[in-house]
Design a protein around this nucleic acid. Structure first.
Length: 715
RNA sequence: GCGCCCAUAGCUCAGUGGUAGAGCGUUUCAUUGACAUUGAAAAGGUCCGAGGUUCAAUCCCUCGUGGGCGCACCA
């Protein structure tokens, strides 16, 4: 590799070559780094899904991580950046199902085994794409330690984790009302829902009092307000606030459900809001999670009236088989006709939808596996409160605390086929009994003779990614490379993933997996909209890498990532390329002026003679300190802007110009040469974490060079 | 409903209790000299609105307006 300064810098031909030389050096692997390195510095890559392609968010996320890793590598740390991909259970299954649908078939027609084969094929085809793309960005992760969350070794650790929790008594199986996606046919955790505002109605429905002697103010019924009248076939109580004087005398009495005349009690609970609607709530334990909890408390039966496909069940009479929305309209009409509808109000409410497929969530009762969160959440809270884990910026700690302090038990099981099947084995002679073990028992411990059958459900994909800092690592890696240091990600997976890694790390490895969590801004379109493929607003960073080079793309992303969300401005990429050009030409000048071999290494003691000499050396010093400080506090954007100012203005505009007469004067010539070379050398080092390709390329021409810039001492 | 964040130049954004900053854009001038992917200079701002604290507020406090996000027991 020769830097040909007779031509403008061409990233397209240079970058692949440079990346190859890095790979060949082996320096991405901490065990192969040169020199004595005492301290580790470890970063965990947020796992891209196997369904993913590169987007601007990845570019930002990974550039930040690469800056840290490259900086620490140059500072003499034993650096390790763990890369990998996530099987992303529901997301991937959804993609493959969509593909099947186009072919006119479905997973049910294929059957479980064939379907999973198909998903593996998909994974082989698309799973590595994003990682290949990240290499173009210059990512210096240790590819020799690449893991996939369904690798055999990884899977073994996932099962062991499940067994561990089960043995502690924290995992239980039970029938509860859970979030259910009728399209995906599976339960979902709270964090896998999205909330969408939708215009709807609030219907006021009369529930007649059975005993009219409690009739107050000349009414013969309680009016409940509901947005979902079709669920009333499953009502098993009406609840009011105990302090609500309007209803005080009715508590303990009985009302009749319209349409079916089934009788249900009136109960009182402090959680009922007196001021909402009429202050009287219809309680449907089977189809509302809040109602389910009320039902548990007051031992109310749960009557399921909506099935797993989101359709009305046989016990709803004429509505059986209807979709819930149809049934809603029909029930309202009937109530109106029969005089049960007191009034109807337009009402904007939030509906929960599946974060994957967008289908409306239907809470239904279902047998699922749950993980008790009490202790885990408490530990995760403590780690951040005590400062063992520092989440930056601070306001994200609130989001973290909020989730953990109001946490519900984690619904672990999913009725999907793609994922880690639960390590639970059922006895075929007594199908309610099961055994939990990493390996399937040869002999059924229950009946002693049956061939046990594994539970069909798979684990929530986040159960396995929660183990990312250590799962699937070799024993020596677990010993040498846990815990790590830093995690950098966007805000959307703070609770979904980061919080769960923290408590999992504590639980299984006895230490938090990292001390610093940096949440960076999200990249939006220029008019402030979310970048999304389906909206056509997404931008592929490869577009910029191809056109302007990876360094310019990295520059643009870092330049703009000041902490807040970023309204993406393409002009920054052009600015990045211009800066690259500046670096290239300034280097050419310095190298030409240095007289090449007449000038030795920059160990030569610098003897500043002129004011300009002193000035540039003091500014370089200041910039070094500042850059170091800012990288340490993850203020990469500021660090880059400082370097930009120093290099372009202080060094190029001012010193390079004054150096010209100084070089022409025999008295100052040598000293100026030495200073030029020294400042260039330091600048290349400081810039390398940000713009690794061009700086590495120029480094090839530096007389003091002994090897790759990526492992030079930063100081 | 509760909570958080944001509002500064034409655009994208930094910033500070005391003369307001960058990149890009615009205008003018310069140029065979490392670089026209350049240099020098200039124009351009009620720092969202109202009130308060202060000797002094773009910055701190309160309320409001507009935008974004998170959570919710959203009946």
């Amino acid at each position: 590799m020769k830097a040909d300064f007779s031509k403008p810098y061409d990233p397209k031909t240079v970058e692949p070559e440079i990346y190859k030389s890095w790979l060949e050096s082996g320096y991405f692997d901490p065990d192969k780094l040169p020199g004595k390195r005492k301290k580790n510095y470890i970063v965990y890559m947020p796992l891209p899904n196997v369904t993913g392609t590169l987007h601007m968010g990845h570019a930002l996320d990974n550039t930040f991580q690469d800056i840290i890793i490259r900086y620490r590598r140059m500072k003499g740390f034993r650096t390790l950046w763990f890369p990998g991909t996530d099987h992303a259970g529901i997301a991937t299954q959804y993609k493959v199902e969509k593909e099947l649908k186009k072919e006119g078939t479905s997973r049910f027609e294929l059957g479980r085994e064939k379907f999973i084969e198909r998903v593996w094929k998909w994974k082989e085809e698309y799973g590595g794409i994003i990682l290949g793309q990240l290499k173009k960005l210059g990512v210096s992760a240790d590819w020799s330690r690449l893991r996939f969350t369904m690798d055999d070794a990884y899977a073994k650790d996932v099962k062991a984790a499940f067994v561990h929790y089960y043995d502690k008594g924290w995992i239980y199986r039970g029938l509860r009302t859970v979030n259910w996606c009728p399209r995906c046919g599976t339960s979902l955790s709270d964090l896998e829902l999205e909330h969408k505002e939708e215009p709807g109605h609030l219907w006021y429905v009369r529930y007649a009092l059975v005993d009219t002697k409690y009739d107050i103010q000349n009414t013969k019924y309680i009016v409940v307000a509901t947005t979902r009248p079709e669920t009333m076939f499953g009502d098993t109580a009406v609840a009011v606030n105990p302090k609500d004087e309007r209803y005080a005398r009715l508590v303990g009495q009985t009302v009749k459900l319209p349409l079916t005349n089934r009788e249900i009690p009136v109960i009182a609970d402090a959680k009922i809001d007196k001021d909402f609607g009429t202050g009287a709530l219809k309680v449907t334990p089977a189809h509302d999670i809040f109602d389910f909890e009320l039902g548990q408390k007051y031992k109310l039966p749960a009557i399921q009236v909506i099935d797993e496909r989101g359709k009305m069940m046989g016990n709803t009479g004429e509505y059986a088989g209807m979709k819930t929305e149809e049934a809603r309209a029909a029930v309202v009409q009937k109530l109106k006709d029969l005089g049960f509808l007191e009034k109807e109000e337009a009402y904007v409410h939030n509906v929960s939808v599946c974060s994957r497929c967008g289908h409306v969530i239907e809470p239904i009762p279902s047998v699922q596996w749950f993980l008790k969160m009490e202790t885990l959440a408490k530990n995760a809270l403590k780690s951040v409160r005590s400062g063992k884990v520092d989440i930056q910026p601070k306001n994200f700690q609130t989001i973290y605390f909020d989730w953990l302090t109001n946490i519900r038990d984690w619904t672990l099981s999913r009725q999907l086929w793609w994922g880690h099947q639960l390590p639970v084995y059922f006895c075929q002679n007594d199908k309610n009994k099961f055994s939990v073990a990493v390996e399937k028992p040869n002999r059924c411990p229950i009946c002693g003779k049956c061939e046990m059958e594994q539970a069909p459900d798979v684990l929530d994909t986040w159960f396995s990614s929660a183990l990312w800092p250590f799962a699937g690592l070799s024993e020596s890696d677990k010993k040498n490379y846990y815990p790590g240091n830093t995690l950098i990600t966007a805000r959307d997976i703070l609770n979904l993933w980061v919080a769960r890694m923290i408590f999992s790390g504590l639980e299984f490895m006895g230490k938090v997996p990292f001390n610093d969590v940096l949440i960076h801004g999200t990249i939006l379109t220029k008019d402030g909209k979310r970048m999304s493929k389906s909206l056509g607003t997404g931008i592929d960073p490869l577009k910029y890498i191809d056109q302007f080079g990876a360094d310019a793309t990295r520059f643009a992303v870092v330049w703009q990532a000041t902490g807040q969300d970023i309204r993406w401005d393409e002009a920054a990429v052009a600015a990045g390329r211009k800066f690259g050009n500046k670096i290239w030409n300034a280097s050419r000048f310095v190298l030409e002026q240095s007289g090449n071999d007449t000038f030795g290494t920059h160990d030569v003691k610098l003897k500043p003679k002129t004011e300009a000499d002193k000035e540039i050396i003091s500014k370089l010093d200041k910039t070094k300190k500042e850059t170091e400080k800012l990288i340490g506090t993850f203020e990469f954007s500021k660090a880059l802007q400082g370097l930009y100012d120093f290099f372009w203005h202080d060094f190029c505009d001012v010193y390079l110009e004054t150096s010209k007469p100084q070089l022409a004067d025999a008295k100052t010539k040598e000293g100026t040469q030495a200073i030029l070379m020294s400042v260039l050398s330091s600048s290349l080092k400081m810039l390398h974490p940000f713009m690794p390709f061009i700086t590495e390329m120029i480094w090839n021409e530096m007389p003091e060079r002994t090897g790759l810039l990526m492992v030079e001492n930063w100081d």
